[in-house]
Design a protein around this nucleic acid. Structure first.
Lengths: 212, 212
DNA sequence: AAAATAAAACACTAACTAGTGTCTAAAACT
DNA sequence: AGTTTTAGACACTAGTTAGTGTTTTATTTT
């Protein structure tokens, strides 16, 4: 006979699992991925570490479950695209500036991005794959048709710009504040970066328009 | 009475110090900064770890001395700039593509760049400061005068492009091969990225030329 | 050649790490 | 109400880590 899981006010499996997942997020945000030790996670959650092994099988599985629960790229989907008549020019600019703000304000995402270039891990690969899949929608549906034989060039340019957004946000405030003389910790600096992103897109589309 | 340091074929302080510094570089390249443990460094060097404390004062000082010994940015100086008549257009393109190749082939630099966004450390800050100083020469001497009121925009664009170069090279081969559909592990992909960098510079200069 | 000095080997401690076995008591079932 | 099950507390082991004290011995000095 199957038995319900304990859900009392003192002993509650689901609540404890949540506590562990929350603890992972909290430690990740404050100490980064290298701070994710079993003992610390258990202490932060306020639940015995034994439960990590019982519920998840181990620290790695807990961490993977945490990572899988994140959904960073769903906000960047090609479906929420209204009428596009400019080949995606405005959409591209919005995507980049929104990505900048999003990464800039999401410390957790910054840590995950860092983790993603620091360590091999299946769940991190999945995150990268999801980003690629979401992006592919945008490229194949909007940009590729417009840029036709220059489609790969547009993709390359977007790769550089998005990578730049990632790096600049990981970079700021760790061992420096400025990059190429731009103070990334100041509102003025971030505005200039966002302006530059938009400028590059404008130039790229202008250049493409001329050819048509 | 002062005494010469031991310089025999078996006991040799300077040679051992070199061995330690070499070991740090070797471990950094293969395992990254998180692999820099005293015991491993000593084992790799083939010298007792006690000597790390005797010679350098500790692991941190050894690592700092290693980092300080690096000179990544000397290859990018504004002095080696010949006659510039195009406002630095060709120079900018060369700088970016050369930086791409340099970072791409220098695994050690990639690890240092990663380290620089992962941990606060004085010697890493010095590296960042040096890069900023070297870049400042280029900007103030070549680009700022040419771009005049758009000087900050040029700097912002360069910040994004260089950051993009850094990130893409840290990114490739860890948890993914492609970014925006560009395969960064293939020669074709890197050529496309370099081409895109040059294209952006061309567009930026073209745009500036029109205004003058 | 003998004495002095410093390079380096070896052994040890203490702190922290991941993971597990045992026991208790709260919650669910009969 | 009594029994069963399992959430959770506690204690323990084993491995890894940084750092140090002691001893040996190669090299330099006298």
């Amino acid at each position: 006979m199957k038995r319900k899981a304990a859900a009392g006010t003192i002993r509650n499996k689901e609540r404890s699992k949540e506590k562990f997942l929350d603890a992972v997020g909290q430690i990740l945000e404050t100490k980064g991925y290298s701070g994710l030790k079993v003992n610390d996670i258990a202490a932060t959650a306020g639940v015995d570490k034994k439960m990590i092994y019982n519920y998840f099988g181990g620290t790695d599985q807990l961490i993977d479950e945490y990572i899988s629960s994140l959904d960073f790229w769903s906000n960047v989907d090609g479906q929420s695209t209204p009428e596009i008549t400019d080949g995606g020019q405005e959409f591209s600019k919005q995507l980049l500036t929104q990505q900048f703000d999003y990464v800039s304000h999401n410390k957790n995402l910054q840590k995950i991005l860092l983790w993603g270039v620091a360590e091999k891990r299946n769940s991190l690969r999945t995150i990268a794959d999801n980003r690629e899949q979401n992006g592919e929608q945008l490229f194949s549906q909007v940009a590729d048709p417009y840029f036709s034989e220059n489609a790969v060039q547009y993709r390359s340019i977007m790769a550089i710009l998005i990578s730049g957004i990632y790096y600049l946000n990981m970079y700021k405030g760790v061992n420096a504040e400025t990059f190429c003389g731009i103070d990334l910790t100041k509102e003025e600096g971030t505005q200039q970066i966002k302006g530059a992103l938009e400028k590059i897109i404008d130039l790229v589309y202008e250049n493409q328009n001329k050819k048509q």
